[in-house]
Design a protein around this nucleic acid. Structure first.
Lengths: 241, 241
DNA sequence: CGGAGTTTGTGACCGCGAGAACAAACTCGC
DNA sequence: GCGAGTTTGTTCTCGCGGTCACAAACTCCG
């Protein structure tokens, strides 16, 4: 899904102990980080891979392998130091400092995102809210004034923003994405139900609510069909827990 | 692959119940369905795999392979009939009829979800909004009255709800999930940043906003490091005690 | 100091999924 | 009717990712 060009030949001769972390691992690191934060809040200083894996909802072998891509930050026979590992993961992800983020489209969803505390508490800082609709402009949402969409480039340049969130209707999403890219944004989180076309080097991640529901509906249909009559296997056939 | 069904009994009505569609394909079917809907709205009656793949943002070979799991609904040398294929995909997903959905947690995000038109237009119908907080109860959001959380089981039973959406704070998510499962819900869409523990047979999909942002941040860090030329890995001086 | 117990880190294996290439099947023009 | 052109459906291959199992390394205790 990432539109990232995989070139980056880059000498790579560097004897870094760890470059090129698998994408699947990258997607799990934030989960580990959150689990570690939760442990730290309960004043737990160290934990085993088994404990952390349980807290993160994954297999312990997978967790150890994931962490091994970052380096050897555990101690055999003991486990992992919570604070130390937290820092290492945060450093690897790049959230040891806050990233400025702008949100375009301050409708229902945009307002919810602006008010979402999880952003500010996990390495991100919302620096501006933008909307093209006149009635929204000037209003204050989550302590920030809603500014005109036309100010996009100016804000991005002034605040060194590289991450943008799109929460506009699907029909406007591509235009917003184009403007973001033109302004210098290179990572986009897209909530609009539309396929975005972006140049190489720009990352796009999409969050599509109705797609998630439809995937659930598919499995739900199968469950219903199975419960009805067509009992193929009878055994648990548990679909993941 | 044996398209010939080995019968499995049940030949009534249903066209061709192929089993075992790969999970990756299931996740893309809704995207295809949306692209087809978009084409239909532009009065396009048929399309090639290449056109549809472009509209969906995927490779045409992958698209053809995905569709082949459903059956042979295209015509060689011609392409796919938009309406016919739309119906077949919708049938396979199970969204030819609407699914009742309940939303628990009517905060900022919950309200945005309740107002989200994409739900109602794509095979889902929000039948109830629930919140444990007194001040919310009785208020009307998106045309629905917010009801007490305690009514969960009653509503689920009355409306035959099998899909639930969780948009409560992380600390309450597990309790809500437990109550949903106890009430008979077997598919959960979780927006709370927490790992849910559910029994086998219950599907959970999670949407985690800060995780998505952190994944973007990771790639963004790499881009920045690459542009700098500085690898900046080691020598970070462990903080270890 | 050494052995037992514990836990990490990693090598091996296997299955799913992505992509390319090609055969099958349909339409169109003559 | 038949060949040329087009597009689907499928086969093959390859690499990523998940899981298992085990050696390495650390602690604890006698």
């Amino acid at each position: 899904m990432t539109a990232r060009s995989t070139n980056t030949g880059e000498g790579s001769g560097a004897q870094d102990p760890h470059r090129d972390i698998p994408e699947a691992t990258v997607a799990r690191l934030p989960v580990y980080l959150r689990a570690l934060t939760s442990l730290a809040e309960r004043n737990i200083a160290s934990c085993s891979s088994e404990e952390l894996a349980t807290a993160a909802g994954v297999n312990s072998a997978k967790l150890r392998k994931d962490l091994s891509y970052l380096g050897s930050y555990g101690t055999r026979g003991v486990g992992y130091d919570v604070d130390y590992l937290s820092y290492q993961i945060a450093r690897e992800i790049g959230v040891t400092h806050d990233w400025p983020v702008i949100i375009v489209g301050i409708g229902n969803l945009g307002q919810a995102l602006a008010n979402f505390s999880g952003f500010s508490s996990r390495g991100f800082r919302t620096v501006a809210l933008l909307d093209a609709a006149e009635p929204m402009q000037g209003r204050t949402v989550a302590g920030l004034e809603v500014r005109p969409f036309a100010d996009l480039a100016e804000i991005v340049a002034a605040e060194q923003v590289s991450i943008g969130v799109i929460s506009v209707p699907a029909t406007a999403a591509q235009d917003v994405a184009d403007a973001m890219v033109a302004a210098g944004i290179s990572s986009i989180l897209n909530f609009a139900p539309a396929v975005l076309n972006v140049p190489p080097g720009v990352d796009v991640r999409k969050v599509d609510l109705s797609i998630e529901l439809q995937i659930l509906a598919y499995h739900e249909s199968r469950k219903a069909a199975e419960a009805d009559g067509t009992v193929d296997n009878g055994s648990e056939e548990g679909i993941r827990a």
